[in-house]
Design a protein around this nucleic acid. Structure first.
Lengths: 117, 117
DNA sequence: ACCTATTTGTCCGTATGTATG
DNA sequence: CCATACATACGGACAAATAGG
């Protein structure tokens, strides 16, 4: 997995890193169970701060693509499982918020159908 | 809006601050259009770092409760609007992810209906 | 099974950038 | 053009998990 970042670009460094890792994931260059390089290490090789890498990793975790644990590092989750888990999570969040606003099931589904690509 | 934090608590400071502001919002102590105190200022009065306050504010922004703009500060959104906007956002995210996984509209609505409290 | 040294993310803090008014 | 105030990136101390003996 080769990553490069360009400090002169407009996009934040963390986002560039996250995008690069996402690309490597979708291209299948890293498999489920693989570990991403430790934030310190990758940061050093990219000449950016550990925390910047960590922020990129946090994004990927929020998307369900990796698991982040102290002392263990960033472990790549199974793509399909990760995507599925993320979808479940979004569905649950949506329904919870909709209920909070008093929407019933029909109104929810109507909302979903109304979302345009 | 009175906020206090307890550094000896387990919860991160940023989360404590976010929770306190959320409470003030739901209790109606601050109205739509009001501005939250600048991060530096609130940080100083709480004796925590500006950045810690900023993290709390970022959480509230992600929940749609406030708008955060450089140079302008943290503006409280209308509760109903904010909740509605957040719901719209969740719906869009859900549909996007579902499409990415190849689900059609019927499968999406089925998923929504299957979410039980 | 136990200890402890290392690895590695988490949290808080600091400095600089940059849009807004 | 200047002051304000969030955004981004960097640095240090800490704690959980792990690995080796």
């Amino acid at each position: 997995m080769l990553i490069r970042v360009d400090p002169s670009e407009q996009r934040p460094l963390a986002e560039q890193i996250a995008a690069a890792v996402r690309g490597a994931l979708t291209r299948g260059e890293v498999a489920a169970g693989d570990r991403l390089p430790p934030a310190r290490e990758l940061g050093q090789s990219l000449d950016v701060n550990m925390h910047t890498v960590l922020r990129a990793y946090a994004q990927l975790r929020d998307d369900g693509l990796i698991e982040l644990r102290r002392g263990r590092g960033a472990v790549v989750r199974d793509h399909v499982d990760a995507a599925r888990a993320h979808l479940d999570d979004l569905a649950r969040q949506f329904v919870e918020q909709a209920r909070r606003l008093g929407l019933d099931d029909d109104e929810m589904t109507a909302m979903i159908r109304k979302v345009q690509p």
